[in-house]
Design a protein around this nucleic acid. Sequence first.
DNA 1: AGGCAGGCGTACCGTACGGTACGGTTCGAA
DNA 2: TTCGAACCGTACCGTACGGTACGCCTGCCT
Lengths: 215, 215
Amino acid sequence: MPLTIKVNEETFTPRQQAVLTAALDLLVENGDGLTMTAVARRASCSKETLYKWFGDRDGLLTATVQWQAAKVRMPQVDRSHLNAKALRLSIEQFARDLLTVITGEVSITLNRTAVTHAAQEKDSLGTIVLDNGPMAIRRRLKPILEAGRDARLLRFDSSEDAYRTFFGLVVRDVQIRLLLGDKSLTQANVTDNIEADVKSATDQFFALYGAKATL
Amino acid sequence: MPLTIKVNEETFTPRQQAVLTAALDLLVENGDGLTMTAVARRASCSKETLYKWFGDRDGLLTATVQWQAAKVRMPQVDRSHLNAKALRLSIEQFARDLLTVITGEVSITLNRTAVTHAAQEKDSLGTIVLDNGPMAIRRRLKPILEAGRDARLLRFDSSEDAYRTFFGLVVRDVQIRLLLGDKSLTQANVTDNIEADVKSATDQFFALYGAKATL
DNA sequence: AGGCAGGCGTACCGTACGGTACGGTTCGAA
DNA sequence: TTCGAACCGTACCGTACGGTACGCCTGCCT
């Protein structure tokens, strides 16, 4: 048995991963360019092999999205010794990770693909993308928020609401504009402002949920 | 010349509007169901007529999106006598309009269509949707915000930043989750919570940008 | 060496759909 | 009444693409 990498109960051989990489490249280059023939040619494999491995076009698409989405691994944040400064740095880090992921070309492509997929009454890709994007961040941020509350550094009733507000403060209209191809939002334009946006969002989050918040 | 309705420099006869309605219905029913044959059959017209009126499939799609997007007209808000209470009601109304539009089936369909379109290196639909959705709200909200600042009811440096924060507080992760077909967000689920979300977002907005805000 | 599984490349098939052509019908104008 | 423009319905064409079949090669196992 060859070396495999385990991803969400799915394993892919290196050769298969090369195929998935080719598929993703085609997706990024040209959203609807993912034809079986194109993937086969790009990956130097036969269509028959594609169908043997992934079943059909949808299986290949799903495998590609799943594999790539799972690769978006954000750095863990140190949760020990939670003082005010550490908490703030953690929050900032989450904001930075979220913005960085969301504005990345791969993420935009995956989200567009999943949205297109959802427009055809199929939500499997949407679930995958949500699970590995926003929900992944949420799963890791929530414990931090609750630790912050336990330490009397934050105040909120529902950690779910707190997280969703955080999401809104950080993402604002950036994601939807990128998905819609807003030309006034160039890639450089966004990345250059990430740090400022991170700080602003964090400030606002603490203003709303900090221990001394007036709300 | 028959009765026409003017929409963004484009005019459509009633018959053409019937065709566009059919096209939108097909889009809503089944995102990728907009085939020329299907539209022709639904609208009881010939394909030749479709091509004569709209040029090609993309023209029909663009006309449909443009026409529908422009129809989303949100009620104007009274801007006279701007006291604290009126300002708050205005902001709430904008939040309510924004959430109502964004969570509507038609809006979801149009956004999905535009995202799919943007995935094919075409951003015309994205521009249209942005212009008639978020940007339309922004154009109308900004003067209100600035009037609020002039009246010493709000504090902010950039009205652009204030608007985008407002957008984030209101929309949060609702839109992207709807676009991705998140099953845990049923239509009823969302609409039932609109009022609470509106109030919460408005409270938070005033906490951040109100005259007595600590930020 | 022989054989066999896995996989490459190519050719092929069926279908769906964008786009065109054309005969027949309606309807208003002269 | 006649003419012509607009338009409907249908048939048709070409192509792109999903999916299948098959011949050939390679490399591993015995």
